[in-house]
């Protein structure tokens, strides 16, 4: 077995897919993994994958063309998922699941139907990983809170499990095109930056000016207070139900939400 070791990013995995395919070892003789291995087995050959944006872009283009935007989106969600640590027994690594799903898809007369075949373990894996990321991203579309800084920039901090930042960037750029905003992902040390009237980009946050992020605009406090009192008032006393509240809005999100602080 030839095992391709790829970086745990969308581009890393897609480069792995490209290399594994181009290697011509045969689909049954290759596997992909994003894991950093402690033990190497004797009879497998390990091939490190150098992330290459050109290769990744080629893969992305093919996938979009053959499977359609929707399936492509699901694959991206799956690739952005954070896997269980340590990995569960018998669970497929996401890179391998994605590779095998792509192989199956391209062998079908209609590749866009590939995610229907949930009886295949690797399709099922892609489906469940994609759902995890998708759910978290969807939650954060609502649970993310911006604060207005002194210089008019809207700033939000999130602590997601999965790499959801690109999906949030896309959503909020469409929603707030005329705002300068920044979404800081504490877990992955990355941030979305969106300058007014332009597209967004993702950057790492080594030289983030944390002092600047503490200086809020003069109105900020006032709107937070208004919102918090709305939040108090909208609950019906006779139906009070903190358990249901926590079930719907898990505690791990609450620390970044103004009305729960």
């Amino acid at each position: 077995m030839y095992i391709f070791l790829c970086e745990d990013t969308l581009d890393g995995i897609f480069t792995g897919v490209y290399d594994a395919w181009a290697s011509r070892y045969g689909h049954n003789n290759v596997a992909l993994t994003t894991q950093v291995l402690d033990n190497y087995s004797l009879f497998d050959e390990y091939i490190p994958v150098q992330t290459d944006y050109e290769k990744s872009a080629k893969v992305a283009r093919t996938l979009k063309k053959r499977m359609g935007e929707e399936v492509y989106g699901e694959l991206c969600h799956a690739a952005s998922a954070q896997e269980e640590d340590p990995p569960k027994k018998h669970s497929l690594n996401k890179a391998d699941a994605i590779y095998k799903t792509i192989v199956l898809a391209l062998s079908l007369p209609d590749s866009s139907k590939v995610l229907q075949y949930l009886g295949e373990p690797y399709v099922n894996r892609v489906f469940s990983l994609s759902r995890r990321t998708g759910n978290e991203a969807h939650h954060l579309l609502g649970f993310l809170r911006f604060q207005e800084l002194e210089n008019g920039i809207l700033f939000a901090k999130i602590s997601p499990k999965h790499h959801v930042l690109p999906f949030l960037g896309e959503h909020f750029s469409d929603r707030l095109p005329q705002e300068n905003f920044m979404i800081y992902d504490e877990t992955h040390h990355l941030a979305v930056l969106h300058p007014k009237g332009k597209g967004f980009f993702i950057t790492d946050t080594q030289d983030l000016d944390s002092e600047m992020l503490q200086r809020f605009s003069s109105k900020e406090q006032e709107y937070q207070k208004l919102w918090c009192s709305f939040f108090e008032n909208i609950a019906i006393e006779a139906r009070k139900n903190p358990k249901l509240q926590n079930q719907n809005l898990p505690k791990r999100f609450q620390k970044n939400i103004v009305e729960f602080r």
Binding site: L176, I236, R239, N241, Q245
Partner: peptide, 25 residues
């Protein structure tokens, strides 16, 4: 959103918070 003004809408809807009675806001 269309690049001008502010706002968009997505079909499944989005819950922004949950009040003390557990209902979506």
């Amino acid at each position: 959103g269309g690049g001008k003004g502010i706002g968009n809408a997505i079909a499944p809807g989005i819950c922004h918070t949950f009040s003390a009675d557990g209902r979506c806001v």
